[in-house]
Amino acid sequence: MAASNEPIKLTPENYYSHETDWQYMSFSLFKDFEQCEARALAKLKEDWKPKSNPTPLLVGNYVHSYFESMKSHGDFIEANKKALMTKPTKTNPQGHLRAEFKIANQLVQCLQEDDMFKYFYGPGDKEVIVTGKIDGYWWKGKIDSLCLDKGYFCDLKTVDDIHKGHWNAEEHRYVPFIQDREYNLQMAIYRELIKQTFNIDCQPFIFAVSKQTPPDKEAIDFSNPDGTDAYQMQEQMDKLKELQSHFWKVMTGEEKPEYCGKCDYCRETKMLNGFVHASEIEV
């Protein structure tokens, strides 16, 4: 687990495997540990699986695979046919595309018809694996669209509503989805891993498309002239460096995981061991 050990080489086939998750930290795994260490560890050890609805993730992957390549999209549809299609009936033995994926087709069409999206996203190499060490620990990432010759990369996000506010309990205010989902951190990680893999400093862009009818879309930059976003990205990286050592020690069993007490895993495994005063219930 230690950063000094050379991890196994990543490939498209093993990138998402639990084996490589034990050797490389990723943005999604880091977020899992931030939200609840006990839940993240149980998922990683395959002792527990969440019962969440997989459809939103599949909708995102449906859109991503389309803009990766026609082969990738065809393979995705074939591998997820049961989830994408309704049950066969006598009048329709093949079934039909579920409503969520009809909306996904609208998202695809929305982006397909946008010249700016095609100009920036289209030319890049797709699903590029990047790796590197951050403060001595191995990390991995997968870049949706990477244009090394032009010095930028793009990440494609599907969201419910681009302009919806998300409550931030620490700041006691609503924040945009970029902040709520820590995409500043993700872009900072990817920029660092690209630099280590290819020795090129790339500018990050996000293309967001909403699951509304009709869909909304936005092209998002992270390099304001006043340096605000650059500061936010550095602030996020400082937080990562502060937390990751503990997360790795939880993974190796050197330190015990903390329970958030509120997630699905904590609710499922909770055992009462005393009374809580009525005035002390956390919200």
Rank of each mutant, 00 (worst) to 15 (best):
M1E: 12
A2G: 02
A2K: 14
A3T: 08
S4C: 08
N5R: 11
N5P: 00
I8G: 07
Y15G: 06
S17A: 06
H18Y: 14
H18E: 09
Y24C: 04
F27H: 14
L29E: 09
E34G: 03
R39P: 00
E46R: 15
W48Y: 12
K49C: 00
P50M: 03
P50D: 07
K51E: 09
N53L: 05
P56L: 09
Y62F: 13
H64S: 12
S65Q: 12
E68Y: 08
S72P: 09
G74V: 02
D75V: 11
I77L: 13
E78C: 00
A79Y: 02
N80M: 03
K81C: 04
K81M: 06
A83S: 15
T86C: 08
T89Y: 13
Q94G: 11
H96G: 02
L97E: 10
E100F: 00
K102S: 07
A104H: 03
N105L: 08
L107R: 02
Q109W: 02
D115F: 00
D115W: 01
M116F: 15
K118T: 04
F120V: 08
G122E: 04
G122S: 08
P123N: 06
G124W: 04
K126H: 00
I129C: 11
T131R: 14
K133V: 07
I134K: 07
D135H: 15
G136M: 10
K140A: 09
G141Q: 09
D144T: 03
C147H: 05
L148I: 14
D149F: 10
Y152D: 07
Y152M: 07
F153D: 02
F153E: 05
C154T: 12
C154S: 14
D155L: 06
D155W: 01
K157M: 09
D160Y: 12
G165W: 08
W167E: 05
N168F: 01
R173S: 04
R173D: 00
V175C: 06
A188P: 11
L193A: 06
Q196K: 15
T197Q: 13
Q203K: 15
F207V: 00
V209N: 01
S210V: 04
T213C: 01
K217Q: 14
E218I: 02
I220Y: 05
I220D: 09
D221V: 12
N224W: 13
P225Y: 13
Y231M: 13
Q232I: 14
Q236I: 01
K241E: 15
Q244I: 15
S245G: 15
S245D: 15
H246N: 07
V250F: 03
V250H: 02
G253T: 04
E255D: 12
Y259H: 08
K262V: 11
K262N: 07
C263N: 01
Y265N: 01
E268N: 01
T269P: 00
T269Q: 06
K270N: 14
M271N: 10
N273H: 01
N273K: 07
G274R: 02
F275L: 04
V276Q: 04
H277R: 10
S279T: 08
E280Y: 02
E280F: 07
I281E: 07
